[in-house]
Amino acid sequence: MSSAGKVRISLIVKAGMTVLLLSGLVVAVWAGGASERTPVSEEAARIFDGQSGTIEIAGGTAHIPVVERAARQITTANPAVRVTVAGGGTGVGIESVGRGQVDIGSTGRAPTQAEIERYDLHPFRFALDGVTAIVHPSSPVRDLSTQELAAVFSGRIRDWSELGGEAGSIHVFTRDEGSATQSVFVSEALGGTSISAAANVVPSNGAMKAAVSRDPAAIGYVGIGYVDSEVRALSLEGVEPTQENAVDGRYPVVRGLYFNTSGEPSALVESFYRYLETEEGAELIRAAGYIPTGGR
């Protein structure tokens, strides 16, 4: 844990890894007292009572909305505790916590056995998230089969008319290789079919949504938590990609969201976990569009 006792009431959503900072795709936001007033959370005040310090989190981009919300509650309840979050993707999460650059590395999948051994990782699963194919809201396409999806993403189907849309080339967007969203989408939604090398590559869930929401001919995929009116989530084999369907197993493209520490979590990180396990924490996770799982 780094410096203690900062009195300023501020939440920093901090762009982390230098490389991605350069990309400017991780947005830096200073929230806190100025913009919106949050009622003080008694739960957070109780759990973080008497503690101080900073929890630095980096990695999977699906986690950012949850951490932002939690951080606002926590710093409002106890200004001596600050939580910062940076993106970078699951790969960055593993590497930066393993090298001691941050306190928590967030990952959009369980760490592999090799990763656990290399960095003595202690994973904490706090939520489930479905991953869904998305298109522009104006698209007439509503539902695709696994075969159709695989054909689109591997470049075998190149025109929307083959899927019942208006004639025109399909613009395929995918994520970088470090992305856990990508790995679960490839294995569960595409049945393991490789994505075409001609696909556009974007480095975060946010960038994916931004790209697809502005291009009527685009198709991509995001965590269900990122779906709103700007993009349309496609049903897979007739099953709607809702978190309810993901929970009861009918929608199969699901992954866990994890926080990882290298070694045992510190007292402050423990408190952070305990806060996420409260009903209030679960509400924050649901508000971000994920399914709370309440711990290990």
Binding site: G91, G178, A198
Partner: peptide, 16 residues
């Protein structure tokens, strides 16, 4: 769409 050497380094370095 193309990838440059610089953005390739940025994208892969993030991965592993």
């Amino acid at each position: 769409a193309v990838r440059t050497l610089t953005s390739h380094i940025a994208l892969v370095l993030a991965a592993d």
